[in-house]
Design a protein around this nucleic acid. Structure first.
Length: 432
RNA sequence: GCGAGCGUAGCCAAGAGGUUAAGGCAGCGGAUUGUGGUUCCGCCAUUCGUGGGUUCGAGUCCCAUCGUUCGCCCCA
């Protein structure tokens, strides 16, 4: 090439047509499932005022501390590309007084999120999340419903072998007591902890629990458990969630080390993990966040939700094998000026009747065009040459059997519905 | 942000300082000037991510830079 080719920015990537098939499948399954569960889609801006995330996610979190795409716009406002979806959804909920509609609001969203991180497989700077939020219910059934929908979603996509990790982080009061206990427990071992954990001892001792350092892990094994520091109400909530999941036959694994990274979580915390994703095994993370709505200026509103990382989900889906690609109903081949014009018109009219039609534009020999028709996997091929153009006819060719007949163009359009039924049968036979 | 590996055509890939840069897939053209998935033939990188340097000589060595992959941190 003559010039340097400009590449997609670091941590971003193009989703090419072949892969888009997977995205469409995921989106279709999500829409269907969420609609059946009475969730309503919400679309919020891709950027927000920076303080929304600072307040909502928490100043001390890594996301706010070092991963946000923040910049000043031309009016000197601090703007941030959303690093997650919950803050924006809750902001909209508060701003538009959705709580005034009363009852429970079930929302879902799907879109791009942005975090300034080192890219890896399953981790981009621009990535996509599907998320749900149930606002206005403190009932453990809401926690269970949300988890159940995530499980159903994975199941509907044919993803097996996930592990559901479950924990509770209690209320902020519970957590405060627990935190103190952890500091008391870990302090004598401070010198034996890995450097990261030493640093966390006073800043965020809960995080020490999921350190990957072997020595730290050994020490953490006998650390006090959150379960012993829960209030009766918190404990009861967590036990009910577990009972409900058991009743729904959703297997889970209690993981007292599971600590979610965002400040707003209370009570239930959970993660769905997939074995085939390497270091980025968490495909879905969520939990209850009873304090966030008031934090953002709304009325006291308990809430629970999750987000699924679509890139990771699709990586796993691709490991399962190919996704069915939609093939056209028919492929139109033509040669010669009149025939080419008539073929274009025919394709146009067939599409108007609901057909999906691919028109060969190459102008190359019939042999080449037929070759392409065969490769396109379509059941039917229409052939127009000079002879057909003059007689206003066409050759109708079934590619699998090779059976071919002459038909007037008018006749084709009149019997399009019957033919379409036959095409449907051919396609079905192929996919079986 | 830290550590390590990698970067040769649209894709996979040989190449280990000596020079016309293997091979396969895909693509395009032809054998077959109006009929398909086979076969055969031909074409398809003045250049090895980019920029410097070492050398008589660099895809091969060195440095930088960009990208990518893996791990850490963290998260979806």
């Amino acid at each position: 090439m003559f010039m340097d080719v400009i590449q997609a920015a670091r941590g971003t990537r193009d989703i090419l047509p072949e892969e888009v098939t997977y995205w469409q499948q995921v989106e279709a399954v999500a829409r269907d499932l969420l609609q059946r569960a009475a969730y309503r889609e919400i679309r919020t801006p891709i950027f927000e005022q920076t303080p929304l995330f600072e307040r909502g996610i928490g100043e001390a979190t890594d996301i706010v501390g070092k991963e946000m795409y923040t910049f000043l716009d031309r009016g000197d406002r601090s703007i941030t590309l959303r690093p997650e979806g919950t803050a924006g959804a809750v902001r909209a909920y508060v701003e538009h007084h959705l709580h005034a509609q009363g009852g429970v609001q079930r929302l879902w969203y799907l879109g791009s999120m942005f975090r300034y991180e080192r890219p890896q497989a399953g981790r981009q700077r621009q990535f996509h999340q599907l998320g749900v939020e149930v606002l206005g219910s403190a009932d453990p059934r809401a926690d269970a419903e949300v988890v159940a929908i995530a499980a159903q979603f994975l199941q509907a996509l044919g993803i097996q072998g996930w592990t559901l990790m479950l924990n509770t982080v209690g209320t902020s009061a519970d957590r405060q007591h627990y935190r103190e206990a952890l500091v008391r427990y870990f302090s004598p071992y401070a010198a034996d902890l890995d450097p990261d954990s030493q640093e966390r001892l006073h800043r965020n001792p809960l995080r020490i629990l999921d350190s990957k350092d072997p020595k730290t892990q050994t020490i953490a094994q006998s650390a006090p458990q959150i379960f012993d520091y829960l209030s009766d109400a918190s404990r009861q909530h967590f036990e009910q969630v577990q009972a409900l999941l058991t009743q729904l036959e959703i297997p889970f694994q209690l993981n007292p080390c599971l600590v979610r990274g965002l400040d707003y979580y209370t009570h239930t915390a959970f993660e769905f993990q997939l074995a085939d994703l390497g270091a980025q095994s968490t495909v879905c993370g969520g939990g209850r966040y009873d304090r966030l709505v008031t934090e953002l200026g709304g009325p006291e509103t308990p809430a629970v939700g999750w987000a699924i990382g679509l890139e990771r989900l699709i990586l796993s889906l691709q490991n399962l094998g190919a996704c069915a690609v939609a093939t056209p109903d028919c492929y139109v081949v033509s040669r010669g000026q009149d025939a080419e014009a008539q073929a274009l018109k025919l394709a146009h009219e067939l599409r108007q009747q609901g057909w999906s039609v691919e028109l060969d534009l190459s102008g190359s020999a019939f042999g080449k065009q037929l070759k392409r028709a065969a490769r396109s996997n379509t059941p039917l091929c229409l052939i127009l040459g000079d002879t057909e153009a003059q007689a206003q006819t066409l050759q109708l060719k079934w590619l699998k059997s090779g059976e071919q007949a002459t038909l007037s163009q008018l006749e084709l359009l009149q019997t399009a519905d019957e033919l379409k039924a036959k095409i449907f049968v051919c396609k079905k036979a192929k996919t079986v």
